[in-house]
Amino acid sequence: MRSKMKDVAQKAGVSTATVSHVINGTRYVSENTKKKVYQAMRDLNYSPNFVARSLRSSSSKTIGLIIPAKEMDTSGFFFMSIAHSIEKKLKEIGYQLILSNSNEEIENEIQQINMFKNQMIDGLIMAPTYGDHSYLKEFEDQLPIVFIDRKPEGIDCDCVLVDNFKGTYEAMNHLIHKGHQRIGYISGPLGLTTSDERLRGYKHALLENNLQVDESMIVIDEASLEAGKKAMAFLLEQSKCTAVMIGNNILTLGSVVTLNKSKIQVPEEMAVIGYDNYEWTEATNPPLTIIKQPIHEIGEKAAELLLARLENPQKESSRVSLPSSLEIRSSC
C-alpha cells in the first residue's frame, strides 16, 4: 500500500505540517529535522503524488536542471557550461530552463526535485549525487528524467555519459609509452561512476602493460583544492613515482600548487596529466596535458534525449556514451 504523508510524519517523529514544509520548501525547517524527514521518505519509498500534474491541460514548456556543484569546486564551471548548451538547445523550440543545485547532497537533491514537481515542469535533467536513487522510480513514468555525467544507482533512465574508462586508459598508455612505469593516481571519492571508471581505466592500463598496481601510489580524498595539495605532497614524500594521473580538475589544480611550491620540474621530475580543459590549464608553466570532456555535446544530447522522451514516453531508455580526448601539451 502506498505510504502517505502522515506515515512519513509518524516515522520521522514530526507533524504532517512539518513534512509538507520540508517537501515544498514553504517554511524554515532545521537541517536535523530535514534529514529525519528525508530518511523517512526513503525508508517508506514515499513521493508526493502527481494528481495536480495529471489535471493540467497543457505543457509548461519548462525543464528543470539539477547540478551537484559544491562551493569552491571548479566542477561548477563544468556543469554551468553543460547548462548553457542545454538551455541553447531548448530555446530553439520554445522551452525554458530552471536551474537548481544539490550541493552534492542527496537531501538537497530530493528537496529540489519536489520543488520542481510543484512548479509543474515537463521534464528533468540532472547530474545525480552519491547514493541510491531508487526513490525516483515512484514517478519516473510521470516525470521524464535524463541523467548526465554520472549513472545513478537504483534506477534505469536515459543517460548521457562520457567514456571515463577509455579516457583515463588512453592517457595512462600515453604516459607508459613515454617510459613511465611508476605512475601515481589522485582521485576524488569513489561511489560515483565517473570516479570509479577513471580509477578502473588507470588500473587496467597498468595491468595490460604488465605493470604492478601499487596501492600506495593511489590517493583517494575529497574533491577540493586542499585535498589536491595534500595528495601531491604525499606522493612526493612517500612514493617514487615519475608521473601522476589526476582524476578531476580541482585536484589537478591543488596538485599543481604543491608542485610549484616544491619547485618540482614538470615534466623532467614529474609528468602530469589532469582532467578537463579549463583555461587555467593552458596558463601553467608548462601548459598541462589534460583529458578533455565533450561538455557542449553532453548538454545538447541531454536536451535531445529529453525532448524525444516527451515525444514518446514509452520508448526504451537510452544510454549515450561520448568519447573524451587527450589534449597533449608540455607537462608529459
Rank of each mutant, 00 (worst) to 15 (best):
F79R: 07
A40D: 09
R2L: 13
G247W: 01
P323S: 12
E31R: 10
E208Y: 03
D221Q: 14
S59D: 06
D276Q: 11
G299W: 04
L211A: 07
R198L: 03
K70Q: 14
T129R: 07
P128Y: 11
N173Y: 09
G167R: 09
R198W: 01
K261C: 02
T281F: 05
S330A: 10
S85F: 05
L288P: 05
I110D: 10
I148A: 04
C157Q: 14
N260V: 00
I250W: 01
L310I: 12
N277L: 02
S81E: 12
M172P: 04
Q10K: 13
M270Y: 02
I106N: 10
H174Y: 14
T289M: 11
A231Y: 04
S75W: 07
N209I: 02
V256F: 12
I93C: 12
H21M: 14
P68C: 10
M72I: 01
E104I: 08
E138D: 09
S134N: 08
S331Y: 00
S58V: 02
N164M: 05
T26R: 13
P68S: 10
S195H: 13
L322S: 03
N45H: 15
S262D: 05
T62N: 13
I183Y: 01
S3I: 00
S216D: 14
D43L: 04
D43Q: 13
Q96R: 15
N173L: 13
A17C: 03
E87M: 12
V8C: 07
E197L: 06
L124Q: 06
I290G: 00
Q142F: 12
V29F: 04
K70N: 07
V19N: 04
G154F: 05
Q238E: 15
L199Q: 12
Y95A: 06
T16R: 08
R200I: 02
K229V: 06
I218H: 01
S330N: 11
I273R: 03
G94S: 08
T74V: 14
S60F: 09
E104N: 15
T194M: 05
Y202W: 04
R319F: 02
P152D: 08
I295Q: 04
L251P: 07
A171Y: 01
T252G: 11
A40Y: 07
A231D: 08
L190Y: 02
E138L: 12
L90W: 10
L305K: 06
I67W: 11
S102H: 01
S216A: 11
I176W: 08
S330D: 11
S331C: 05
K61F: 14
G123W: 00
P323G: 03
I106P: 08
S30L: 04
Q119N: 15
N164A: 06
I121V: 15
M72S: 12
K151Y: 09
E109Y: 08
E170N: 11
A227P: 03
A40R: 08
V160D: 06
L206C: 01
S20N: 12
P144H: 09
A12K: 02
P287M: 10
V213E: 10
T33D: 04
I125K: 02
G76R: 10
I250L: 10
